[in-house]
Design a protein around this nucleic acid. Structure first.
Length: 136
DNA sequence: GGGAAGGCCGCGC
DNA sequence: CGCGCGGCCTTCC
């Protein structure tokens, strides 16, 4: 077969070491699933959600999705790595997030949540173990 | 606690 | 098509 019909196949230039491609719709579902997995009374960060969703380093995408999705999600359980809400300070949305969390028993002191207490998944746990347990 | 730098990437202009 | 900006993160200072 000298001359295969597909002379010009896809370059597939993936310069960085990022996870193999995934259709946008799948990525979205992955993230949604991860957010739904956050237990009641706990919180998670954008970066952690990305990791759990199998999309390391794509924290921003989580934020973007949360901003625009209309899916039913416990969006308020997702906060930033400093333990604070990433919504505009003083906004209604932020107040709502705070009260929703407190309603679940999450302590919010001076606008901050102690991730070592309420963070999910637990910080000190290796990812491979997480994938086994996927809980707590 | 706070800044800067680099990473990552979808989206709108 | 290029560029800037996100509900961001980590590392380093």
């Amino acid at each position: 077969m000298a001359r295969a019909k597909k002379a010009k196949k896809k370059p597939a230039k993936r310069t960085s070491k990022r996870a193999p491609a995934a259709a946008p719709a799948d990525v979205e579902q992955q993230i949604i699933a991860a957010v739904r997995r956050i237990p009641r009374g706990r919180v998670s960060t954008y970066g952690d959600i990305a990791r759990v969703a199998g999309l390391p380093r794509r924290a921003r995408l989580v934020g973007t999705l949360l901003r625009q999705t209309s899916a039913k999600l416990p969006w308020y359980r997702v906060i930033n790595a400093s333990g604070r809400s990433s919504l505009p300070d003083g906004s209604d949305a932020q107040r709502r997030q705070c009260s929703l969390l407190e309603r679940e028993g999450v302590e919010v002191r001076r606008g901050r949540v102690d991730l070592s207490l309420y963070g999910w998944p637990a910080r000190d746990q290796p990812l491979d173990e997480l994938l086994w347990k996927l809980e707590d």
